[in-house]
Write a protein that binds this DNA or RNA. Structure first.
Lengths: 171, 171
DNA sequence: TTCCGCATGTAATGGGTTACATGATTAG
DNA sequence: CTAATCATGTAACCCATTACATGCGGAA
């Protein structure tokens, strides 16, 4: 249940509407924590009910701008310092376990696909990295660290997939 | 909805009961695709209903041994070749985005914790790798590839966390 | 005036976690 | 006989996805 904390985190910087937040989820957070529109509006309502955020301004078309409250910030800090990140599932890896039921050629295709996808992501992240003007702000520092993680992960995945294909034995 | 495919995959090798499969999920698949007992029994019942597996033997204490059927194997192959792995969420990374709301010391603590955890996992996987007698069987080949992924991932995470801590600026 | 983007919401369904509930077998 | 292990199942709740539904405001 980290969506609520993702929302709190995004509201630290400045107030925003559900629509604004959705765009952030579809762009910068897309690779880290995807969220759907439905889920997001529902969660915002719950957060407002529990007082962690408030509607600070109403705009045209029923737009509601939410602002983080003190209890909301406290909850975000509590989550960061007192809870452990949960274990992640890896769909990619699960499939690897069972590649033996395919022909070697099909297994190679799968690994090649993974290599290509990782290479694509890697290039995309590199472009993003180059495009951003990193300054010294906190957000910049931690955004940079997160992006570096993504790049290292993509590189690792690509190299692993390329190595893995050499391990597959022709039948 | 990959749990069903994980179950099909495990049943490729040999028939097994829910209880047997649960142990596999708690040990070898624990880091790839965790599953709870509840979920597992429910899914086995559904798989049997749809004919992808059958109860091939009944043992003491109501034990039911399930065997993969031909349609089950076909479904497993279809999943492997025709569906794309889904994007993963990263709780660890999500937190990094928001480390700016903590004190630099708290942020360092978080990164150190991540480094330590990755190092621990790395050691554990190394031990596992050394302990297993890898032969030429398919399962061995792909199990080995999966384990290699785990080790590379853990190494990457450790190195990243150690690098990241050097990027945090004291206030 | 017409279309695009802004903006929010609900309902149905499925997957996942926790907790509850029960009981048979076997090893010591 | 007693405790550990084997073994299965149900119920409640929450989170996530998909689809449906609606309507205003601004720009061309």
């Amino acid at each position: 249940m980290s969506l609520r904390h993702a929302l709190l985190g995004l509201l630290v910087e400045h107030p925003a509407s559900g629509y604004d937040l959705l765009k952030t989820f579809d762009t910068s957070l897309a690779n880290v924590w995807p969220a759907t529109q439905s889920q997001l509006y529902g969660e915002l309502a719950k957060l407002a009910d529990s007082g962690l955020i408030v509607v600070s301004e109403q705009g045209p078309r029923g737009r509601k701008e939410y602002t983080l409250t003190d209890p909301g910030l406290a909850e975000l800090r509590r989550w960061l310092t007192e809870t452990e990140p949960q274990r992640t599932r890896s769909d990619v890896l699960l499939r690897v376990f069972f590649l033996g039921v395919l022909t070697p050629q099909q297994a190679l295709d799968y690994l090649d696909g993974q290599a290509a996808q990782a290479a694509g992501l890697r290039a995309e992240l590199k472009k993003l990295d180059d495009a951003i003007d990193w300054d010294d702000a906190d957000l910049s520092v931690y955004g940079r660290i997160a992006l570096e993680y993504g790049q290292r992960l993509a590189a690792m995945q690509q190299e692993w997939a390329e190595w893995a294909r050499t391990q597959v034995k022709p039948r």
